[in-house]
């Protein structure tokens, strides 16, 4: 494993920790999109189907279990927890996530590495992950007062994707057989979606002012 990949996994983990911290200690999910969280739960469930079939490494297994458990528990908190769910900004979280599920599934049926159930689900999870952040970005744009944790959460998620791209470039030169066009292209699209957010996040951090996205 290279340094970019490890750093990417760590920022991904950090994003989940930040979100759980917000939910657990502040008992708030303000500014967090339930739509995005549900999409991530689907992404991990679809991608980690190999969990019980292929053993890669202890690291791999533990990380997969962490992402599965955290994503489903976040959804549970936002839907069921009697204090947390009251802080959910339902009125502004209106992105129709069902409309991205179907296109992703169709795309996965058409473009995959192999036409098997697991490979189609893998491709589906890659396409879905690329666009799963959209409801969250829309919600942030509609939120007047973005709290720090919600901003950091999205920043770490974006950083994870950007670091994965560096990891792919590194792997391309060191492991010539390692070519996964599907994840590379989807990963680049996914990272580009954050570009605008990154700009405002870094600007606000540099000028030491509160993060605010233009409507």
């Amino acid at each position: 494993m290279n340094l970019f990949r490890l750093a990417g996994d760590m920022t991904h983990l950090l994003s989940v920790v930040v979100l759980l911290l917000k939910i657990h200690t502040i008992k708030s999910c303000a500014g967090i999109s339930l739509k995005t969280q549900e999409l991530y739960a689907i992404v991990f469930a679809a991608r980690y189907l190999d969990l019980f079939v292929h053993f890669m490494s202890l690291y791999n297994t533990i990380m997969k279990l962490v992402f599965l458990a955290s994503s489903f528990s976040i959804v549970w908190y936002m839907r069921q927890h009697k204090i947390v769910r009251r802080t959910y900004d339902k009125e502004h979280d209106t992105f129709r996530h069902q409309f991205i599920l179907l296109p992703c599934l169709v795309l996965a049926l058409l473009i995959n590495e192999k036409f098997t159930f697991r490979e189609v689900m893998w491709a589906f999870s890659i396409y879905l992950e690329a666009v799963a952040i959209l409801p969250q970005l829309v919600l942030l744009q509609r939120t007047r007062n973005i709290d720090n944790l919600a901003g950091h959460y999205v920043f770490f998620l974006g950083a994870y994707r950007a670091l994965y791209i560096l990891n792919w470039i590194y792997r391309y030169f060191t492991e010539p057989h390692f070519v996964h066009w599907i994840s590379w292209i989807a990963g680049i699209v996914q990272t580009l979606l954050y570009a605008d957010f990154f700009y405002y996040y870094i600007t606000s951090w540099k000028n030491n002012v509160k993060l605010e996205l233009p409507a």
């Binding site: 996994d9 190999d50 992402f67 994965y164 057989h177 390692f178």
Partner: peptide
């Protein structure tokens, strides 16, 4: 044949 399962990324 090359094994598909080098999908070690998360």
């Amino acid at each position: 044949e090359h094994e598909q399962y080098e999908k070690d990324e998360l």
